[in-house]
């Protein structure tokens, strides 16, 4: 017999304050007014592959179910097409909330193991940060090496095709003033997150 698992969430699963914290980020405020109509799930071209629909992610986020949303596949399946954002009758920037949740999942390192998408995001970030530009083929190679190098074998035909058409390059692209960019990005690390909330109360982690 198939293994049965509980799908109903318990009060004890909540991480109180999580919803507030997300809703205090610039651009994510409107989540408060979600009416759970499901338009986002209806227009999402990828919802058929998601474990939680976008509507459920909105409800779970607002209700403090941090672990469920940060571990969900949904946030990584969002391809940023913004269909939900433009269709939402309450003008909730759902795509931006997905970005906020992705950032939190990466920061806390709670995403599905060996899942390619957060690995790609992190490698993309590192390369853009250190070189100022992204060399697509090196990035793809790194991603496969760090997740499933066997899958890279399945890419040989595409790689060869790109090579034959002069679209494959392993020469690292970079900007001239890397140090300038680095100084600029480091400045952000040194500024407190409080300065990001326009003077509204900024709940700290663990508060509420």
């Amino acid at each position: 017999m198939a293994e049965l698992t509980r799908t109903i969430k318990y009060e004890a699963d909540r991480v109180p304050g999580f919803g507030r914290e997300v809703m205090s980020v610039p651009g994510c405020e409107a989540l408060e007014s979600c009416i759970q109509c499901g338009t986002c799930s209806g227009v999402c071209p990828l919802s058929i592959y998601m474990d939680y629909s976008p509507r459920q992610v909105m409800a779970l986020t607002r209700a403090d179910f941090k672990n469920e949303v940060l571990r969900s596949h949904t946030i990584w399946l969002c391809a940023s097409c913004y269909s939900c954002t433009v269709e939402c009758p309450r003008q909730i920037r759902i795509t931006d909330i997905m970005y906020e949740l992705k950032q939190r999942a990466i920061k806390e390192e709670i995403y599905p193991k060996k899942f390619t998408i957060p690995v790609l995001a992190k490698e993309f970030y590192k390369m853009a940060h250190s070189q100022g530009r992204v060399t697509e083929n090196i990035l793809a190679t790194l991603m496969f090496l760090k997740t499933n190098w066997l899958a890279a074998m399945g890419q040989w035909k595409l790689g060869l095709g790109l090579l034959l058409r002069g679209r494959f390059s392993l020469k690292m692209e970079s900007i001239k003033r890397k140090d300038e960019l680095n100084r600029m990005l480091t400045t952000v690390d040194n500024l407190s997150i409080d300065s990001l909330t326009d003077g509204r109360s900024a709940p700290k982690k663990g508060s509420h």
Partner: peptide, 20 residues
């Protein structure tokens, strides 16, 4: 000396830095 725009994948890691 243009640099990476900070697109989609970068934004998933740090949105403020993407804006930078």
């Amino acid at each position: 000396d243009w640099n990476c725009c900070g697109a989609t994948a970068y934004m998933a890691v740090d949105e403020v830095k993407a804006c930078v």
